Simulated assay, not measured.
Amino acid sequence: MPGVIERDEEADGAQAVLDPKLELEAERIAEALVFASAQPVSEGYIASRLPRGADVPRIMARLKSIYAERGVNLVQVAEHWAFRTAADLSFVVQTDENEVRKLSRAALEVLAIIGYHQPVTRAEIEDIRGVQTSKGTLDVLMEAGWIRFRGRRRTPGRPVTFGTTRDFLDHFGLEDLRDLPGLEELKGAGLLSGRIPSNFQIPVPLGDDGLGDDEDPITQLDLEELGLLVPTGGDEE
């Protein structure tokens, strides 16, 4: 193929690589695709628009390094990419219109529990908090786009499980759930008191959007039951 240099065919897992000119062009295309999108762009979508043989992770890593010291940074959000204002310049572009409504303490607690313990049911959230969780609190987090229904637990009653979304990662500047702060980071930020129990542990998020072995996928009937879809039963004439 013109413009493509083939690796040794005998090498296991060998892939075609682009010559320098085509790789530069692929880099420019990837940059334009992310810049033009209002939402984070998946690596799969970028790969579908680049010349065959383009190494998307390497191209995105190079672009990320180029923008690392600029006013906007290229950031990774769960295998998606987006341009975001550099963290130290966020105050410059903040406006009253864009100010996000502050969450209540209850909503913050629930969001933290879902972030660290997902997949988690409402009953499990309440067990961790020690108090009941109102539907309104969950609704606020749903409307913000930070939590979602993951599936249904394979236990009596088939309770719904909750998890965080890509928008959650994007808003809080996380590439992956594993980037959530650990015990020492939380203590260093003053979010945990110095008198916590010696056996206190911060759970390590799995960082996996796939359903667990004890979860079933959400179906259309489930969404109707949860009031998220209008029943699809045929109307009698």
Rank of each mutant, 00 (worst) to 15 (best):
94 Q>L: 05
183 L>C: 06
60 M>A: 03
168 F>I: 02
3 G>S: 13
63 L>C: 07
17 V>E: 11
28 R>D: 10
151 G>W: 04
188 G>K: 14
214 D>F: 12
70 R>Y: 09
213 D>R: 08
101 R>H: 09
102 K>I: 14
8 D>T: 11
204 V>M: 04
83 F>W: 02
163 G>N: 10
111 L>C: 07
204 V>P: 04
223 L>K: 11
170 D>T: 01
111 L>T: 06
178 R>M: 09
87 A>R: 13
207 G>C: 08
136 G>K: 12
40 P>D: 06
141 L>S: 07
71 G>P: 11
30 A>K: 00
185 E>T: 14
202 I>H: 06
22 L>V: 04
23 E>K: 11
31 E>A: 14
78 A>T: 00
176 D>Y: 10
195 R>A: 08
107 A>K: 06
128 I>K: 14
55 D>R: 01
81 W>M: 05
170 D>H: 06
73 N>Q: 12
154 R>E: 12
58 R>S: 15
131 V>L: 08
86 A>F: 04
63 L>G: 07
170 D>G: 01
108 L>V: 04
38 A>F: 03
234 G>I: 14
211 L>T: 01
166 R>I: 07
15 Q>T: 15
56 V>T: 10
232 T>H: 10
130 G>D: 03
193 S>W: 13
73 N>H: 15
64 K>V: 09
40 P>V: 04
58 R>C: 08
207 G>V: 07
137 T>E: 08
46 I>L: 00
193 S>Y: 09
145 G>E: 10
100 V>Y: 01
160 V>T: 15
223 L>Y: 04
203 P>A: 00
109 E>K: 14
157 G>W: 08
150 R>G: 05
55 D>Y: 03
86 A>N: 13
42 S>V: 00
208 D>P: 00
48 S>K: 13
4 V>H: 00
28 R>S: 12
219 T>I: 02
83 F>K: 01
113 I>E: 02
165 T>K: 03
139 D>S: 07
136 G>R: 05
163 G>D: 14
10 E>Q: 02
108 L>P: 00
98 N>M: 12
152 R>L: 14
132 Q>H: 06
184 E>R: 13
103 L>A: 10
59 I>L: 05
163 G>K: 05
7 R>H: 03
34 V>E: 07
117 H>G: 00
122 R>E: 11
201 Q>A: 06
29 I>E: 09
182 G>E: 13
21 K>V: 14
231 P>V: 04
148 R>H: 04
53 G>I: 02
196 I>L: 12
134 S>Q: 05
226 L>M: 15
127 D>V: 07
156 P>D: 15
115 G>W: 02
233 G>Q: 08
234 G>C: 04
211 L>E: 04
28 R>G: 03
54 A>Y: 02
17 V>D: 03
16 A>M: 06
58 R>E: 14
181 P>K: 00
